[in-house]
Amino acid sequence: MQITGSQLIINSLIEEGVDKIFAYPGGYDKDIFDALYHEKDIELILPRHEQGLIHAAEGYARSTGKVGVCLVTSGPGATNLVTGIADANYDGIPLVCFTGQVATSVIGNDAFQEVDIVGITRTISKYSTTIRKREDLGRAIKEAFYIARTGKPGPVIVDLPSNIVSEIGPAEYPETVNIRGYKPSKGVHIGQIKKALEMLKNAKKPLFLIGGGVNISHANEEFEKLVNITKVPVITTIMEKGAIPTKHPLFIGNVGMHGSYASNKAVNECDVLFSIGTRFNDRVTGRIAEFAPNAKIIHIDIDSASISRNIVVNIPIVADAKAAINELIPLAQELYTKKWVNQIKAWDKEYPVTAPSSVEGRISPQAIFENLNKAFTEGIFLTDVG
């Protein structure tokens, strides 16, 4: 059976379980929109700008665990995705971004709305490719979704020349993927898990440091269960806010330059730092030579390149956060941490994270949020970094 490239793209989205697509029409993606118009199982979310589009797709992927799918036209449509692509790349968010492109016959001739989006995004994406042959289209899309969601998730760009999209070709969509040189880690090394638990068991001042990987792998319930078993206190990066309820008795707060005194003091004093899903960036560590000076460090991360890159660790475990935590739970045991937790709570009480409700008669941000919390007990607040 022969179908257009645009119809194969829509068929592939159905095969990959896509039910929402964040898309903005233009001259070089209009054929895909025509095919999408007749597909009732995919909801089209139309933004007012491509930059808003990709951030919406990011938020969808973060909250659902699914791959966020973007569709934009060539040139400015594609370049408007760049900030969101970089953000998704650093935070490990799975995205597949389809970008329109001029016909293959004029690529490289500075045609109208032609940009080398693959070249632009190569260093800020997990993978990017321009489709050159119609017969490669199905395989390339299959690989894109596989790369985006496996290993450390990330954004993949599939650049679609207009003649490839309109060309008639095979309808087959592959069921499996075999990419030479790309073999993401699967499973968990149980020997390393046992070593980590033995180190944790012998600790006097153990501490969990939890990064964005726990949220990305949707391991929140599993991690809270592990904390309830071990009774080890928890600090988090900003990316991991919400991995454990902030009212949990063992939650201390954020760490690093945006963290609390108690959290940072706990890092300085702990003797075992059990970190999961964090890349130890400079906002967390500060001066590397002074970070966790008394601690042996255990590090679980899906990305082997993140382990011992910034902070040298004692026990490395390359694994998905959820898979690793599920291996830890049945082997974990309660530790005596009451004295240690009380010490951290005392630091928090002595140096709390507070701000005055008003300064010189003017209302403060602290007062605004205190009153918002009173008025909207179930409210969702979105913040920015300015």
Rank of each mutant, 00 (worst) to 15 (best):
I235M: 05
F376Y: 09
E240A: 14
G213T: 10
L328V: 02
S162V: 10
P170R: 10
V72G: 12
I21C: 13
P161K: 01
I380A: 15
V313F: 11
E43R: 11
Y37K: 09
G151V: 04
E334A: 15
P206V: 13
S304W: 07
V272F: 11
E135G: 13
G5H: 01
G191N: 12
P206Q: 08
A289D: 14
G181Q: 12
D31V: 03
K66Y: 06
K225V: 15
V385T: 06
L273D: 11
G119W: 01
V272S: 14
K322C: 00
P161W: 02
E58C: 15
L81H: 05
M199C: 14
C97A: 15
G191I: 09
V234Q: 09
D91G: 07
I190H: 07
A144D: 13
R48P: 09
A103S: 12
A305L: 10
F251C: 01
I85K: 03
K247I: 02
I147M: 06
T237C: 06
L372V: 04
A148R: 11
D31K: 05
I42F: 04
V214K: 13
K186T: 13
G181W: 04
L328R: 05
P153C: 05
I216C: 06
D136V: 03
I21W: 14
A355T: 07
I157M: 00
I210P: 06
G119V: 00
P76I: 11
A262H: 11
E360S: 14
M257R: 04
T246I: 09
N268V: 00
N268W: 05
I45A: 05
S125R: 00
L372D: 03
G242E: 07
D31S: 08
G181K: 10
L36W: 02
L13G: 09
E224V: 15
E114C: 09
M199T: 11
V67E: 13
G379C: 09
P233G: 02
V272P: 10
I107K: 02
T246D: 04
F251P: 00
K126E: 10
V158L: 11
I168V: 10
M257A: 12
T150V: 04
E172K: 15
Y127S: 08
I131P: 05
F274T: 14
N371Y: 06
V72I: 05
A262V: 00
K225H: 14
R139V: 14
K374R: 12
E114N: 02
K296N: 08
K30M: 10
V106E: 00
C97S: 13
L226P: 12
F280L: 06
D348L: 01
G119P: 00
D271L: 11
I190E: 08
K40G: 02
K195H: 07
I297Y: 01
I363T: 07
